[in-house]
Design a protein around this nucleic acid. Structure first.
Lengths: 143, 143
DNA sequence: TATTGTTATACTCTATAACTATA
DNA sequence: TATAGTTATAGAGTATAACAATA
């Protein structure tokens, strides 16, 4: 049987993960704010920078109600970062897609997320490989 | 010099961390919702379950403006989970503290956070030790 | 009938600024 | 005058329910 969550080692790991989560979020929100975006807007923009998506699908990806997506896309569209397109295959569907400016903003946002460099820089390549394998296993991504 | 964030290994680790962050948040919000608490309320309650704190200090810990704390404590107080006490040393200060029911809720909340058990259960004690050391180093907690 | 997106509504969280009561 | 907490205000995110257009 797996050890209970109450053993000291597991508790410490959980606390460390919580610390990483807190730091990641803080840096993400800061990076978004630098580009005058809220966290939700930044996440949506990052999602659309990969591919256009129907409003419904965005809600599923963001794990929120479809009615919320309307407002977030409205605000991004008002700033010229996103646009709505009709779906030729189904006239009920609206595809949200980044504009050229939206893609540029998404790219700059990604670059300014230095969470990648700073904390991970403390680890050697071997240590990063080890961390990758442990995280994969934690997330159940093992082959 | 530290490797750029653009090398594939680092990028994958960053993605994995993002996945862990997303999963942690999801589980935290779900656990809070099971107890009819919002995320902010759950975090505040968890904080106060350790020790009573002045409103100002809560804002610092939660990294938000003091004016926000008023409302969150109001709502927790209305449900009997938290109470405001005067600070004998400074009559300007109000100490927020959990009630007995608040502490019980905080404990149940903590127990229902099975993020500790489920994903970490996939790791052996040796692997958890390794993960702990890597996370410590990432967060700059090395002695 | 079912589905897509939107609107309407209400609540929470958030920051800013102004206010009060203490210090 | 400075500080602690609050209030007032406005904007954003969230869920629920009801609606129009389309399938």
């Amino acid at each position: 049987m797996a050890p209970r969550s109450t053993d000291p080692l597991t508790l410490e790991v959980v606390e460390l993960i919580a610390a990483v989560v807190a730091r990641y979020h803080e840096e993400y929100e800061d990076a978004a704010a630098e580009h005058h975006l809220t966290g939700a807007q930044a996440r949506l923009l990052g999602l659309l920078s990969l591919e256009p998506l129907p409003m419904r699908r965005i809600a599923q990806r963001l794990k929120c109600e479809p009615s919320n997506v309307t407002g977030i896309v409205d605000r991004l569209e008002a700033r010229g970062l996103v646009e709505r397109r009709p779906d030729p295959a189904d006239r009920r569907v609206k595809l949200a897609a980044t504009t050229a400016e939206g893609r540029a903003t998404a790219r700059r946002l990604r670059d300014s997320l230095d969470f990648a460099r700073e904390p991970l820089a403390a680890l050697s390549a071997e240590q990063r490989t080890l961390l990758r394998d442990l995280l994969r296993r934690m997330l159940g991504l093992e082959a």
